[in-house]
Design a protein around this nucleic acid. Structure first.
Lengths: 187, 187
DNA sequence: AGGTTCATGTAACCCGTTACATGATTTC
DNA sequence: GAAATCATGTAACGGGTTACATGAACCT
């Protein structure tokens, strides 16, 4: 059976929050910071069909007095399990290099499906992978930076600063979760 | 005639620096910060074939005494023109939202093909688009941040900080080019 | 009556991924 | 002589992009 695409996981995370129609999902991709996903019907409706075929979501047509009918999708038990499996994977160096956006997506819905302890483990893993990867970029800059034209050097610099910013973010996220968990325990 | 993919432009930029073989290009994608591109032969060799069919690169087989022969690709005049056309496009809001990586790629090879004035125009345009886009993300955080679970809020925060970091980078790049151009003029 | 928004789809095309395949040369 | 590296390809598959298509309800 085929695998779930990044878009597929975004859809799973959104229909977990509440049952939604294809149109709802398109609006979210068009109007919120999830705008980095395409809101074209040609990507979303086929993706929903695939997820339903795989048994990860199910749909029913909602009849609404006066209003147009629409097809509402909701998550199944196996869809929730697949969502969790995907989120629980260890953060790898490869994720950090090739799939940063997907990492953030995995994290964005994590509290709602797995709770703060899993989220804390995730950002901790991310912090470690970033701390391990960034030095290799710095080394490259030191070795070859002198020979590069200014635009090349600056482009490399932008990559390094992007990862450094992410590392700083991960560290502040760790603290935020440590605080939250401590506070919860004291209630 | 079909268009050039992001990978295609990366290849054009690299063979502009010097003639290179498919294997050279794979090694660059495997061992340098351009590692965010895939180094699989199944992407690179077909991409090179497409570029050659489009007349943007040309190849000759290099015979090397003792060493294996390899196919060296070099940029054609029309390839250089296409590379420049792609790089000279105005930076749009859509670029900033959907194609940040491609923007950096456009910039990375810009000094070598177009010179510092074009690079300065590019980072200036990028700075403007970022400065215009970021407030809409901040607004979203202010409106909906309170209702979001911690992981969602943090994920949004990471996006905002990423764009803010890029904005700071763009401003420092603008200064770097202004200095460079001033110095050049005084020689 | 006409334009906009709501709402859901299909189909062709392209390209990246993954896996398979081959053979020469260098190194140990 | 075996393993690693050099070097170049092909083929099936899947999914995203773009464009096309349809129709109901709402607003003016």
């Amino acid at each position: 059976m085929a695998e779930v695409s990044t878009l597929g996981y975004a859809l799973l995370g959104l229909v977990e929050q509440q049952p939604r129609s294809g149109y709802d999902l398109r609006k979210i991709f068009a109007n919120t910071p999830m705008i980095s996903f395409s809101d074209s019907p040609g990507s979303i409706y086929p993706a929903l069909q695939r997820l339903e075929k795989q048994g990860l979501i199910r749909s029913r047509v909602e009849e609404r007095n006066g209003l147009r009918r629409r097809r509402l999708f909701h998550l199944t038990a196996s869809g929730l399990a697949e969502l969790k499996r995907w989120q629980l994977q260890l953060v790898t160096r490869d994720d950090v290099i090739h799939r940063v956006d997907e990492l953030m997506l995995r994290f964005a819905f994590m509290d709602q499906s797995l709770g703060p302890h899993a989220s804390l483990r995730f950002v901790t893993g991310l912090e470690q992978q970033l701390a391990a990867y960034i030095p290799s970029l710095r080394e490259h800059r030191q070795k070859y930076g002198g020979d590069m034209p200014l635009s090349g050097r600056l482009a490399l610099e932008s990559g390094i600063q992007g990862y450094e910013g992410l590392l700083a973010w991960a560290r502040s996220a760790i603290k935020a979760y440590q605080n939250q968990i401590k506070v919860r325990r004291n209630i």
